[in-house]
Design a protein around this nucleic acid. Sequence first.
DNA 1: CGCGGGTTTGATGATGCTCAAGCCCGGTGG
DNA 2: CCACCGGGCTTGAGCATCATCAAACCCGCG
Lengths: 194, 194
Amino acid sequence: MMKQLLNYINSNSSSGISEQEFEIVKSYFIHKRLRKKQYFLEEGDICKYFGFILSGAMRQYTVDDKGAEHIVQLAVENWWVGDRESWTMSKPTMYYIDAWEDTELLLMSHENLLELVQRFPAFAETKKTMDDRNNIAGQRRITSAISSSAEKRYLTFLECYPYLAERFPQHIIASYLGIAKDTLSRIKRQLLKE
Amino acid sequence: MMKQLLNYINSNSSSGISEQEFEIVKSYFIHKRLRKKQYFLEEGDICKYFGFILSGAMRQYTVDDKGAEHIVQLAVENWWVGDRESWTMSKPTMYYIDAWEDTELLLMSHENLLELVQRFPAFAETKKTMDDRNNIAGQRRITSAISSSAEKRYLTFLECYPYLAERFPQHIIASYLGIAKDTLSRIKRQLLKE
DNA sequence: CGCGGGTTTGATGATGCTCAAGCCCGGTGG
DNA sequence: CCACCGGGCTTGAGCATCATCAAACCCGCG
């Protein structure tokens, strides 16, 4: 079951790590379960851990002055969740993160990450891959947010993350894309009529 | 004049590097000048280098099917420019990057970055800081793009990057924020009337 | 003086939001 | 087995926000 993390590391680094080494790596993580709707992080908290999702699905969102939720991130198996700003700088977060399904996580503190990166070159490589991917995905999302219509944003979302579209209900997807659930409903109808 | 890079590295890492070491570090970079309006990158190119801006100002943008430009990034002294996706994966870029003012750059290839990070712990630390910052800024921008009105986006932009607002004309800022120049003009008028 | 680049303004209209109602469906409990 | 309920989706009417387009203006510069 923790094999998943081993796979993740090995498929994201050229060298990889052995089973023995992995025993050590494991000890840097804390195992945690969350039931549907439980919070992983709430506004004002300090994000002590980043979480690697073994199974389940989670959402990260802000709540604005009018009390409306805005989803900034969705995550499923083999993704990481957390607020990097809070985690690296130890400052209070503005986000909520909760479990959308029952979820199993491996938690890692910032200090432990630094140590792991020092100690295992393969892990450092994995981390680089994550950073690159994260940056790239962020860039793409910004590009699409400022330059595309609601419809096009939805279409590229479907292309990039079809499995998220199956995993979360439509109003969550809508919020993730920055559009109203009603509008997304209409867009879908429109698309069916080719 | 290249002192700037030394300062940058030393102020973004706990250990820092010596003047001698810096001589070596320097050799990893290529010096380049661009005159106003010259391209650093064009759609379809492969981004061979990331650039550290010594002086000047640059913009990064896409051009959509209708030929309209959408600014995804602005950069001035001590910032980095480039398309990370193209740079790390050696694939053709979708962006244009050009000089808004006469600009002086230090260029670094991806291979050289990897070597530098290996060779100088201080540089690895600097890189980590950059990645963290980049991620955090990206997260913030996404959050504001999906959850704030045009007016609020403009206000937080002014708070975070007042110096960019002085450096680039208003229609560029508007595009960066994903709003029409006309709309931004009206928002400003509105704000003056308190 | 005229030109280029930038900003402002007004009129008009599209796009997407809000709100409220109704529907569908699966689960729970009587 | 049915009634009810909650969560999610759809739909319509009206509205706010923002984009578009075209014209005028402003100003620094050759």
